[in-house]
Structure formats: structure tokens, C-alpha cells
Design a protein around this nucleic acid. Sequence first.
DNA 1: CGCAAATTTGAACGTAGTCAACAAGTGTGG
DNA 2: CCACACTTGTTGACTACGTTCAAATTTGCG
Lengths: 243, 243
Amino acid sequence: MPGCFADRLGDFIEVTQRERTALDRLEERPRSLKRGAALVRENDAHSELFLLTDGMMMSSVLLRDGSRQILRFYYPGDLLGQTVLAYRESPETIVAQAESVVCPIDKAAMSELFCDHPRLAGLITAMTEIERVTLGDRLAEVGRSSAHARVAALLLGIRQRMRGADRDIGDSFAVGLTQEEMGDATGLTAVHVNRMLRTLQRDGLIARDGNRLTILDEAAMIRTANFVDRLDGIDLSWLPAAR
Amino acid sequence: MPGCFADRLGDFIEVTQRERTALDRLEERPRSLKRGAALVRENDAHSELFLLTDGMMMSSVLLRDGSRQILRFYYPGDLLGQTVLAYRESPETIVAQAESVVCPIDKAAMSELFCDHPRLAGLITAMTEIERVTLGDRLAEVGRSSAHARVAALLLGIRQRMRGADRDIGDSFAVGLTQEEMGDATGLTAVHVNRMLRTLQRDGLIARDGNRLTILDEAAMIRTANFVDRLDGIDLSWLPAAR
DNA sequence: CGCAAATTTGAACGTAGTCAACAAGTGTGG
DNA sequence: CCACACTTGTTGACTACGTTCAAATTTGCG
């Protein structure tokens, strides 16, 4: 998995040799995590961010009444725990959703990167911005659309993320979430997620087999989900020249 | 209002003279906007970001069924339209919620800033991260809490933002939103926002007089809102040295 | 194979939405 | 300066989407 981050950034810009060297240095000390293991816990002090090189992880927050909101799922090439760039204690919990491998990145390394590679700094800022916009879409989805739409959007979103990490993902893929987790991601109960999945299935939009899911009618899914691909229409022409 | 942005950043770090000069240059061409005027429209091409120096603005997205989700409110010192750093077309609409003044910042100026002032670049990244975390709180709020809690959280959030721009804001302030807008921000209907405001009032947590609102029992408000102050616990020690 | 976790279904309930009517402001033009 | 139109706020009655609770069934793991 070395070069994983450089590869991801390579989807957006031409990474120079010098930049690639700097990026690869961030991926030196891989650590593997068992399914369910917490990488960072809400309100715990933290001091590094991480690069996910393999597996699947998620971040969430807990409310006082015990309910949980899942904020995001991460796939290889994603940066985890960027909150360390702003907070002493983590505002979110980050857990391995499947067997995973991460590489810790010291804050000091980030500082160096910002000084030596302004173009990469700009790119990381732009990617953070893409995340922010995506989170805004999620907010609109949870605030303003039906349970149907939310579940459809979740499924499309997951597939899109998976594709970002692995180009070969087609219409059929393993979701890797329980219905309880889907509920915590969409602001629904597990029971209601189940009902929505079944109606999507009944209406021929999806098919399911075990934990494997197939999108049968992508157009209808996109329509019912109000889905917008936020990796479309990207423009990074403002970035400074590579050093 | 010159020095507005430098002042805001000054809440987080000691801004050097050289940095202040660079920042002040961003605020050169003020433009004023009437209440209700759109600065950027969803799906329109855009090429600059803006600094809000006076007034109040908001960003929102529209869903196909016509409903709207308000993503954020902006107060003096806030940066608007950072989406231009990633997208050719704006994913959100930005509108003046009150008479406002903004200063356009060309993307090229951002590029220069990233090259010449890595510390400020890091700070801007950190502030974007704070926004991202705040948006995550909003998601948890809308996804996992009651209408009561959401309205209380909205009111506390607005007061906190106002305080960021003006230290003198106390327990009593003009919200500056219709109940319809409060609904679009919290994912509720105007009618239900009204009911929630009235019960908060009946229970003695708030008082209202015209568009003026007073927080009577802050502790109870924070409790019912599940409110967390995300400007607390900030740690920017990783930032590179000023140039 | 056996157990625990996850899924599925039904029934009753409740929170928030919808619809409708009215009251109270607010601003504009005659 | 008032009259009128329009927006915003308030309330009630009814509806519906999603939750809760409970139990049965399936799945998958040790």
C-alpha cells in the first residue's frame, strides 16, 4: 500500500517526483486494526492524524441519550482524524469497520508539508472542502428528505466512496454495514432501515443477497436519493505551482 | 472594517506585522449587499471567495421538491464561498440575510497566501476543520435529536456566532431569522418551530419580544440542546512558524 | 453444532407535518 | 396619513411517517 495517498491525490493533480517522495514518507509506520477497534475515542487527547491504506473505517459522535450519529465512512486513501489540526481532544470517535491498516502522520510532518509543498497544502485544503460540501449534502438529506431517499443516498454514497478507492467496484458490492449502522448514518432506526431496504427491493431498485447488494436501477436510485456526485465538477486551477 | 479578517485570526494566533499586511490586502474592494441579495447561486460558475466584513449572510441548498436546507449562517470575519477552492460551480447558494458588506478575494490571492504564509494556510485549514466539525454536530442534531433540542441548539449556535464577531453580545439579541428560516436550518416546519419556541418560552428557558430573544436559563438551554462549544479546546500548536 | 447477532414482521404509538384560518405586523402607494 | 397587500406569527384539528416494543426467523461465527 505505499504510495496510497500519492495515488489518491493523483486523481486530482499530477504529483511530481519530489512531492511523491514527501507523501510516501508519511506512510512509513503501518499499524493494523481489528474490526471494531477504536483508533481515536471522542474526548480523548490526540496528537496524530492517520492515513487509511486498507480496510474501512467510520467516525461517529455520541449523544447524551446514548444515540449515535455516524458522520462518515472512510476507504483507502482517505485521511483520518484531521480534527487533530484544530482540537486538543477529538470531537469524534473513529473505529475500524473492517480489518484495516492505517499509517500515523505526526502533526509535525503536516507542518513541514505546508512549508515545503504549498501545492499539496492547497490540495489538502480543497479535499477538506469537498468533505465539507459532502457533509452539507448529508445535512440536507437528513434534514429535508424521506427515509426512502436517505437510505438510497447512503447506498449510492457508499458505492461512490468504494469506487474512489477501487475502480473495479461495479453495481454489486458488499455494503459492510449492519442495518443498525445504516440507521445511525441516516438518522433512522434499524427497523425502519429494514423496511426501506425491502421497499427499494420490492420496487426493483436494488437486489440483496446476504450482505451483498446490487444496484439494479441506478437512474431511479439517483432520482429517489436526490444524489449529487461531488467528485464531479472539480476545479483546482487556483493551486500554486509544484515545488 | 479593514483588518477584520486579521482580527478574527488574531483570536487564534498572534498575527505578525507581515502577515497582517498580507491579510489586509485581501480586504480592498468592499461591496455592499441589500438584504435578500444573492452573492452566489447554486450551480453558477464562481471564481472568488469573499470575506464578510459586516452584516449577516447564510448559505443553503435546494432540493428537487423545492424544500431548502440552510447550511450555515455567517457573521463578520467569516470567509464565504470557500467551495471555490474545489468546485467550478458553486454547490450552495449564498444570500445576504441582512444588509451586508463583503470583500471579494481572488483565488490567485489565496494561492499566493499559501506560498508566502504557510502558517496562515495552516490556520485557514484548521478553521475549515472547525467548520467541518460544527457541521458534524449539526448533522447529529438533525439526525438524532428532538425538535426541542434542535431549536434550542439553533439559538445557542447563533448567539455563539454573533459573539465571535461582537464580544458584547449578551443573553439578549436579535435573532434576525423568520421562523420559516429557523425551520429550514433545523429541518423542521415553520409551524413546528413556532410551537417549540413557545414551549421553550413557557418553560422559562427563553423570553421573546418582537424579533428580540433573551436566553433566560442558559444551563437548561445547553442541556436540552446538547450544545457543545466548538471554539473550546482548540490546539494549534502544530502550525509552522510565521514567516 | 450452538449461540449471539442481525434481520424481518406486526401492532400500537407519538412526534412532527399538513392544512386552514386568523391575528399581528410591515411596508407601499394612493 | 391612511388603506391595502403581503409577510410573518399563532393556533387548532387532523394526518402520516417513522419509532417503539415484541416476537419470530435467519445468518454467521466460534
